[in-house]
């Protein structure tokens, strides 16, 4: 009788151990998916278009695997709209037992947008997403501009960062967002970030009435008619 009782106690203890371990593993489980992509330039205007180039997209990763994608180009652009050279796009990611992460980098040199309206000798877009038992985080540390000039106004001297989502008006053209950051995820089970280092929004006035006396348009709304992106990197993790 005593032996049977001991047997059941042992079985219950073993069951408790299994349940405990399972709960422990689930509590510290990390990302089941990571994603990343990076590209140097993208142009979509009423008069010109160029796809995301050079584009690196992290292949689908499963299990506890890891991977890398990279793309490069000596030059990219659209005449009269954008010119650039020495473009490099890299994205890496991996799923692990205790942590997971993805990181993407896009670099572009000698940037010239809209015939000198915006110039930079170098642009680097960096994003990182990582997930551990403590949660999921993303950042764009290391994203910088080198000798950035917007509408003849120097923004950075040498290599320097610009505050996220810096908005500068471009009269007659639209506006540009520097270090544009678009976060995603809840910061616990998922996190993601897209950074577009130079995002030009081309705008046109739609509607409104022309005042014949002043020659000005009264009313109407500005609508985005095109966009130019230089240096874009995206990463994300999710469980």
């Amino acid at each position: 009788m005593k032996a049977i009782k001991t047997l059941w106690v042992n079985r219950l203890a073993a069951l408790g151990l299994v349940v405990g371990l399972t709960a422990g593993f689930s509590a510290t489980s990390v990302a089941q998916s990571v994603a990343g992509q990076a590209y140097g330039t993208y142009v979509n205007t009423p008069v010109a278009a160029s796809s995301q180039s050079p584009l690196a997209v992290l292949p689908a990763i499963s299990g506890t695997d890891g991977d890398i994608a990279y793309a490069e180009a000596d030059a990219a652009g659209v005449p009269g709209t954008l010119s650039s050279d020495f473009l490099n796009s890299t994205t890496t990611g991996a799923l692990g037992a205790t942590e997971a992460g993805a990181q993407s980098t896009a670099t572009v040199a000698d940037v010239n947008i809209l015939n000198g309206l915006i110039t930079a000798s170098g642009v680097i877009a960096h994003v990182v997403s990582s997930q551990t038992a403590n949660g999921a985080v993303s950042n764009a540390n290391g994203s910088t501009f080198e000798n950035l000039v917007v509408a003849s106004v120097p923004v950075t001297t040498g290599d320097a960062a610009v505050a996220p989502n810096t908005n500068i008006t471009l009269p007659g053209v639209g506006y540009v967002v520097l270090n544009e950051q678009v976060p995603s995820g809840d910061g616990v089970s998922s996190s993601g970030l897209t950074v577009n280092m130079i995002h030009v929004y081309l705008q046109s006035l739609v509607g409104g009435i022309l005042n014949p006396l002043t020659g000005q348009i009264i009313g109407g709304t500005l609508q985005t008619t095109g966009e130019i992106i230089v240096g874009s990197a995206t990463s994300s993790v999710a469980s």
Binding site: I68, N88, A94, I124
Partner: peptide, 29 residues
Amino acid sequence: KVTFGFNVFIGVVNGDCIVTKGEIQVVHH
């Protein structure tokens, strides 16, 4: 400025510590 990306798998093969597969991309700007 140097940017990089890599993904390497390390294992012990015949007693040696070996990179079994992987890629490394490094750019000096």
